[in-house]
């Protein structure tokens, strides 16, 4: 977190904690992780858990379609004007890390058009284990992996697994069917991440869903403190 990142003068710079009118901007949380690990479903779960208590919006970064945005629209987790899709030129990690200009434009437009927001979730298109968000774009990031992608992913590490502010190990209900050892995944994640938190989540059994939402609430409490 970089809570007091401010710049002098009129230049609107990406990480500024305040908008040009002096109000504090929305907290931005990024969600990254491999293809199919359940990022969009996690975003949908967070929207359902938080939409009655917070003003929130979502930016998706699809690889070559608008499918993630359309999934969220279809599921009606938020009104359509609160969901924006950014096109990434086949390179989601470029759009969330190396050249964040289109994403910054999207978050700025959402705040301009909808009014004060508490939270903006920025979802990356599915990418590889090294894909992380720029600190100029988000204040904290969640990395989502799943048990079916192989229980050796926490051991392999990589910037997403080791440095994300929260690691979500998703689809725990599938573990018995794919032969994944959850205890081993937990031990490997602890070894890679030291004190950083890990949540084991199943959107089917609802296990862990409340914990992820609780973590987001705590981030927001620190941001607005």
């Amino acid at each position: 977190m970089h809570l007091d990142h401010t710049h002098d003068g009129p230049t609107a710079v990406s990480a500024d904690a305040h908008r040009p009118d002096g109000r504090r901007r929305a907290l931005r949380i990024g969600l990254g992780g491999p293809v199919g690990s359940g990022k969009t479903a996690t975003v949908a779960g967070l929207c359902r858990a938080l939409r009655d208590e917070l003003s929130l919006a979502v930016v998706t970064n699809d690889i070559y379609t608008r499918e993630d945005a359309e999934f969220l629209l279809r599921e009606a987790v938020l009104p359509p004007e609160r969901i924006t899709a950014v096109e990434t030129g086949a390179c989601p990690h470029t759009a969330i890390r190396d050249d964040i200009s289109a994403n910054l434009e999207a978050v700025e437009d959402l705040e301009d058009e909808i009014g004060p927001l508490d939270l903006i979730l920025v979802e990356s298109g599915g990418d590889n284990l090294t894909a992380t968000f720029s600190k100029g774009l988000v204040d904290a990031q969640i990395f989502v992996i799943d048990v079916a992608g192989g229980d050796d992913i926490p051991r392999k590490g990589g910037p997403g697994v080791t440095t994300a502010d929260l690691l979500v190990v998703n689809k725990t209900d599938l573990a018995p069917y794919v032969g994944s050892d959850l205890a081993r995944m937990a031990a490997d994640a602890r070894a890679q991440r030291a004190e950083l938190p890990v949540v084991f989540q199943s959107l089917r059994t609802r296990a862990g869903v409340g914990e992820v939402a609780g973590w987001v609430r705590a981030q927001l409490a620190a941001w607005t403190a």
């Binding site: 030129g89 470029t94 190396d98 050249d99 200009s101």
Partner: peptide
Amino acid sequence: GRFPAGGHAHS
């Protein structure tokens, strides 16, 4: 080409 001004998403 890496100057972060959005060109990477356009052909």
